[in-house]
Design a protein around this nucleic acid. Sequence first.
RNA 1: GCCGCCGUGGCUUAGCGGUAUAGCGGCUGAUUCGUAAUCAGCAGGUCGAGGGUUCAAAUCCCUCCGGCGGCUCCA
Length: 586
Amino acid sequence: MKVIYSDGKTGECPKEDELHVIRHTAAHILAQAVKRLYPTASFAYGPATEKGFYYDIDLGDAKLSETDLETIETEMRKVIKENLQIKPFILPREEALKLMKERNEPYKVEHIADLAENEPISFYQQGEYIDMCTGPHLTYTGTLKAFKLTYISGAYWKNDCKNKMLTRINGTAFATAKELDEFIKLQEEAERRDHRKIGKDMQLFMFSDEGPGFPFFLPNGMTIKNSLLEYWREIHRQNGYQEISTPLIMNRRLWETSGHWDHYKDNMYATEIDDEPYCIKPMNCPGAVMVYSTQPHSYRELPIRLAEIGTVHRHELRGTLHGLFRVRCFTQDDAHLFMRKDQIAETITDVVRIINEVYTKFGFEYYLELSTRPEDSMGSDEDWEAATNGLKDALNKMNLPYTINEGDGAFYGPKIDFHLKDCLGRTWQCGTIQLDFQMPLNFDLTYVDENDDRQHPIMIHRVCFGSIERFIGILTEHYAGKFPVWLSPVQAKVLLVSKKSEEYAGYIYKMLKDANIRCELDNRNEKIGYMIRQAQYTERVPYMIIIGEKELENQNISIRTRDSKTVSMSPEEFLEKITTEIRDRV
RNA sequence: GCCGCCGUGGCUUAGCGGUAUAGCGGCUGAUUCGUAAUCAGCAGGUCGAGGGUUCAAAUCCCUCCGGCGGCUCCA
């Protein structure tokens, strides 16, 4: 694929950069079309992204809605049909500024001001349209073959909520129409996996207008949650964690001491009890700290691992709520570890190992992010540096790749975040490991060292699932609702072909029930196809047991799985199979 | 919180100035049936809430509430 660079030379584009160039050029064509339709529009950033491209545009008073996308697409096709040559040119800073001012592009002017002095500034022109850009680009607008505008959203200038909100037009582009079609099909498939839709189908959870962002778990969802927690408790017991439970509401004094009142107040729900101010916990740490501080500790006991399935409430902004992924009340599979300085690396390694074990069990891929000191935070620079290096060392020792997210740590310490992908490729933070030198100081936590001196322990805050709600949401999309048997709300469902074999079906049902299998019986006067439709495609039951005269006669059962395959076996054989699967959590 | 869109029975939805469509689901009856849609009948809606315009509002306007897609933020 031929592209043109900012120095005016054309060349063959490296294969791996092709899509990026196509999309970037699509963004320019989008801008040109918008400028034709809205002559007063001025343009901010318009990059190619992982899934397409967008352009942030200031449309003044004009409002754009999704239906306008068609008009813009039509205009873009005109630009493509005109097959304009795309020509770069370079200007010195002053002239670049002058050009952008003349063309009424205040955002580009501001952008130039952010660039290094003396840096020559490149532009690309196609017909009447000029954009400041480093390139490279396609050589002619006519070489853009497959694009689609997808949606409109708002976006702050320079991603800062203090700045003006611009209109972001999103689109995608590919080298061929076939690839674009595949992309659209994939998106549609992803929408079918949406945990909110599946959650409704399978009756896992719900929301009420009486509590936006506060999820209700329905019986089926509760089964999944409890199965996950059972697994979680098993792993944590094996790894030396002790489980505690701490109050949901505590006196504001506690939150002032912990630093939450200073640094996290905006997210906290407050109330009053007997004329005293109280807060509903947004985090579990102060509770664990209370438990630690209730007794003196020796260096020999450390690390102490206090786990808590703790429900927290946080006032999140309305616009951020999203199914189970972003809620205002969620349950963390939390743990707070208290340790000596010399135990940091070893303890963190151990925590990472557990989280990795859990994620691997579900077949998740994840990526790690190390977040450093935020502006609004407490503690000395030395402590922050030591804590950050502690996390880095552990990651490096384990050879784990990670990216650094500057300034995104908790207010009390830096953190390692585990990010998981949802069905649309958006990533969500789930597990996190936070190293904290501050809270033990704030609460004056101590242990007695080998010289009989009092020392402050260091704390780790960590979650593995993160929020159980979010984790179940991710799991739902990951499995498209076809949960493994050990998590499935209904593990087997007996479907009756006709009343003639009702007694035998009842016998099979009872056998499974008695063996503690989560089993249901469908003995309605319905055709078998109808029952299968409901069991397999709505309830997503892993094993459908079909019972009719044939089975009665052979004293066996027919097992249909969610991939529509059917096999026959003896009831005992099936019981053995499903019991093993549940026990081994496969 | 900000930008845009949306809100009709349990679910999906038609209607977009003359007081409500249909399908699925539910219930009842018939059918007794072999691996995703048998037939018939019935029930179920103060069209998110409040206010306004109008002879007349699900439909137009305003406010609020809730949802969706993003932005910001986060587990």
